[in-house]
Write a protein that binds this DNA or RNA. Structure first.
Lengths: 188, 188
DNA sequence: CCATACCGTTGAGAAAGTCAATGATGTACA
DNA sequence: TGTACATCATTGACTTTCTCAACGGTATGG
């Protein structure tokens, strides 16, 4: 496990480790007065110094990192149920009482229809969901959670809520609500 | 602009399409009074109805969707430079004046060291960055942007800022700042 | 009946993520 | 000094995820 996978909830962590990394002005390729892109100041120690780079301002970088950390931890916590966040999301829709078709699941979860097939196959084999042909449109299949599926969903949900509580531990309840609200605005 | 597939910044879009999807109570597997997981109410039309499912509350779902939308759009806009967000992030660190080693890049970007190798290989072949052995520690290589690299970075940055402006178009300046701040808090 | 469009499914290939091993180098310490 | 151990970049193998094109079954509009 190279990247994440550590333990401490947030911050610090890596900082303490060996601090003997780079930092050499290296003479060649001089920065000159004010390089093209960044306002390169001093070269300090930890990787936090990259927070002043342009990429650190990018919303892509921030969402990717946040997502990566969260999903990694969540998947790890879900191992006991032999489930992944990915499968949970499908199961959750199946248990929503909203009678989702596979196409709708794909659209909502930003997944290709072919990926939904595989995910539903898996859950169906485990007896967690059923495929029912939609009587209104016999082309589409409505995915519905079985009793066992709803049970599995409930267990997973509890674990995921705990995991999220861990992931968002640096945010106040109010901030968590704000974050969800803001993400929702840009997610659709 | 204009070149991209869809057009409208956000919302709507799919909603209008064919509304003849599912919704059948389907007799079998009855919902019964209040299913186990959700408070299943009415079954309405668009996929927005899944916003009441449990998965829609999950931070994973929100970050994944937001990230997917954003990166997809950004990558599309970057096509002209034959660059992807992924490569830009490495280039950005190389141009930061912070003399990052590959290991540090990997840690900061949440990428495996082996992935950094490939990314740097690519940028190096294009003449955008150089690998310089760190005189302080000859095991590590410091990645530095060339003049051409800084130029490419500047162009890409402009495109990405426009793309982000599009992606975040539903947020006020204040909200954008909040979002960045909140994500930063949970990203490290 | 016919043309057209859509749904789920399959298959193939590219991209991304994960992991172990290796050579070169650095660090600690007896 | 030498010896054990850790770290860095790199390679290779493998799994997962993504993307796309096709196809059969089905729906819709003339």
């Amino acid at each position: 496990m190279s990247t994440s996978t550590d333990n401490a909830p947030h911050g610090s962590a890596a900082t303490a480790r060996a601090a003997a990394a780079s930092s050499a002005p290296t003479a060649s390729t001089p920065d000159g007065p004010s390089g093209a892109g960044d306002a390169a100041g001093e070269v300090t120690d930890g990787i936090e110094r990259f927070l002043y780079s342009n990429v650190a301002e990018q919303i892509h970088f921030l969402t990717s990192r946040a997502r990566g950390r969260g999903i990694s931890h969540a998947n790890h916590q879900l191992e006991g149920l032999d489930l992944k966040v990915r499968q949970f999301s499908v199961l959750s829709l199946a248990a929503s009482g909203q009678n989702p078709s596979q196409r709708e699941m794909g659209e909502f979860l930003s997944l290709d229809p072919s990926q939904i097939v595989a995910l539903v196959d898996n859950l169906e084999q485990r007896g967690a969901v059923l495929r029912e042909t939609d009587p209104r449109d016999r082309r589409s299949k409505i995915i519905i959670a079985t009793d066992a599926g709803r049970d599995l969903h409930a267990q997973a949900l509890q674990i995921l809520e705990d995991s999220e509580d861990y992931t968002l531990s640096t945010l106040s309840p109010r901030e968590r609500k704000q974050l969800r609200s803001l993400l929702l605005k840009i997610a659709f």
